[in-house]
Design a protein around this nucleic acid. Structure first.
Lengths: 218, 218, 218, 218
DNA sequence: AGCTAAACGAGACGGTACGTCGCGTCTTTAT
DNA sequence: ATAAAGACGCGACGTACCGTCTCGTTTAGCT
């Protein structure tokens, strides 16, 4: 299971996001920008070291030792670059079957916290939202490339809970994840609150205890 | 009860937030920007009509028929201006005592949805978060000026629910509001999902049904 | 008698070239770019020190300690700037009445050589020609602002020669000047030949000796 | 008798100009760019159709259906390419012995006008001058490859005039040609004046009538 | 006829300069 | 006296070409 990276489709001349594993498997030679790694990592470095307001294409190019045009050749905008830079380090692990629904849910919440509470990259998320909001089609592509895998992996764990009878039939796995991610992001970005053990535990219990509210409209 | 607006203290040269009522009451003394209303409303117009990326000081000045320096005299940054422009229309109503906890919670959720799902202004929120994130002290002041009143009014309603016995002693009102606001914002900004009646109802039931998870650590 | 400088007509919002004397006479305060002098002189410095291929707007701005936009605000193109920079030091003296036609013609030829053989600025002339050729209307304005005065002053001297009987009625003063300027420029730019005393003398004699060929078509 | 074309000496890695006849005669050895003709003609096409400012290597390569590297393989710079493109169509005919000096001189002047008044290519000449000025050695090589033959052919005709006694001993054939070419170019490029029959005739008479001024310093 | 080496097309790359836009400051003009 | 208008130094934008550099792919002369 790999990360997504940017690539220009040579046939359509349109930019597409490949899964890096696909990339590796489809070609033993590097396809796409030769310096994709260098560039994405430089973008993260700049974001971490200087903050979003200093995340300019020129700064990334300089940090990566690359010409601006190389970045523009492969990424159509700062948002696209930022999306890939974040996606590249976004956790989307499969939740192992532990035989213990509560433990699995806790793993899912922890992974979500890992992603959103990441000191540096989290700063990029609202910026990304700002940039993508006026372009719903980009937003959709971003969700698919970026959040899909993580949400699917977590949904698998939730469905295991349903099978075990720990969670009710018809659980709205999307809503559960919106509650988790939303609460975590909101506390992180707007409230600056802690995202400690206690909060994680309560988010788990919220799902274990109140399933009726989280069951999809019949 | 008025809205907060920004103002530069001429003595200390520091930026301060006035309650707009104060402003209105003292306006015969020509304190504060004469064109505050024009400017904030122009800012919202630009944001609505052209999106955040076109929300420049120059555009706001032009739309308000005002010189750039007039804006800079009173607001130290685009973020400050944006914050006031949003705060100016942010709903923070008191929740009336309906004698019915569920109905009151629903009012609270609806108000939150009103604020965050507002087609146009919501676009400004992640931008605001982006701008404020590197400045925790600004973020704090923003929270106080901006979210405080709304959260207090909702907390009053939640505590009424506790007194009525509909909600448990020790309910963590902050966490409740984080779950509500977070879920709503996340769906609005990241998922583009609907924020319909059903979701509102389930967010209410989530709080009514699973109080254990929402009680502060003992 | 002044030099031409660039100026934006505030009414028409179009760029115009003013005679600097006019400029001085029309306004005791500086009209036009506050740093016109700094900029034009920086342009000449760069041209002299590094050659035309290094004469970039960015280099001029840097050398003048000025923002690029200040240059673009007042000059619509590199050619316009170059034209003014050259015009600013282009000799267009009146030829004094010496009572000696040969001596006056020699003054005229020497002035022409001064202008075109100038080690550094001459390099700018073919560049200017290249830039203006596709825009006949610019070329016309350039001729008027730039060459007119010089040609008129020389024509005055030629007509004195006609009055004295040293040159024939109907002398084509334009053709004379085209022959002089053309020969000098061609030797300077294309042949790299010397432009010494001897050449100057022969260009004078060419006009004194062969008037028939230089009389306008009857 | 052919035209000169550019070629990179594979041994010395220096650029040399071949006479195109040499090229044709040696072409069985595959010397020189296979697509020299295509490229030079594409260069002229671009210059004619879009002007000098659009004469980029990339545009020429595209117009010629050729890779950029093929051009760079054979021409070290845009100026070299332009020089060859112009030289390729530059007239340098021998002036036939008509037994009539005036008629022969007129042929020479007409040929010069043909070359310099060519609507499209003339635009390339000042550009060429601009590019070559900072490199005197290139300028010299250009003169030799480009102007030499034409000037020699005209000089032959002038010397026939001397032998016939129509022109004086010691006539400075270089100065004559500088006057002709200079006047024509200057009127064409700087003045935009006509280059009609009348001008041609007067340039001829200028040389026939005023030989003293055109005799080399004794 | 098949092989080999060159020349070739295509175009990615690190760069430089372009001309534009908006920033936040400062100056001028006109109430 | 205050504010509009807007010039200014600055820095990033996204674009166009530069000249260099791999890449396969012709293509032509030589076994």
């Amino acid at each position: 299971m790999g990360r997504t990276v940017a690539c220009l489709d040579r046939t359509t001349k349109r930019y597409v996001s490949f899964d890096s594993m696909e990339l590796m498997f489809t070609s033993d030679k590097a396809v796409g920008p030769r310096s994709a790694t260098k560039i994405l990592s430089a973008a993260r470095d700049v974001l971490t070291a200087q903050g979003y307001s200093s995340l300019t294409i020129e700064a990334v190019a300089a940090a990566a030792g690359v010409g601006k045009s190389t970045i523009y050749r492969w990424w159509p905008s700062k948002e696209a670059l930022l999306a890939d830079a974040i996606a590249d380090v976004f956790r989307a692990d499969e939740i192992p079957d532990l035989g213990d629904t509560r433990a699995e849910l806790r793993l899912a919440v922890d992974m979500t916290i890992d992603n959103y509470a990441n000191e540096d990259l989290a700063a990029g998320l609202p910026a990304l939202a700002t940039g993508l909001l006026p372009h719903p089609e980009l937003m959709t592509r971003f969700r698919e490339a970026f959040l899909q895998r993580k949400r699917e992996n977590i949904a698998v764990a939730l469905r295991r809970g349903v099978e075990r009878g720990d969670l009710p039939e018809g659980l709205d796995t999307d809503l559960v994840q919106d509650v988790w991610a939303g609460t975590i992001l909101y506390r992180r970005l707007m409230m600056g609150s802690s995202l400690d053990d206690d909060v994680a535990d309560r988010l788990v219990r919220l799902v274990l205890d109140s399933p009726a509210a989280l069951v999809a409209r019949s």
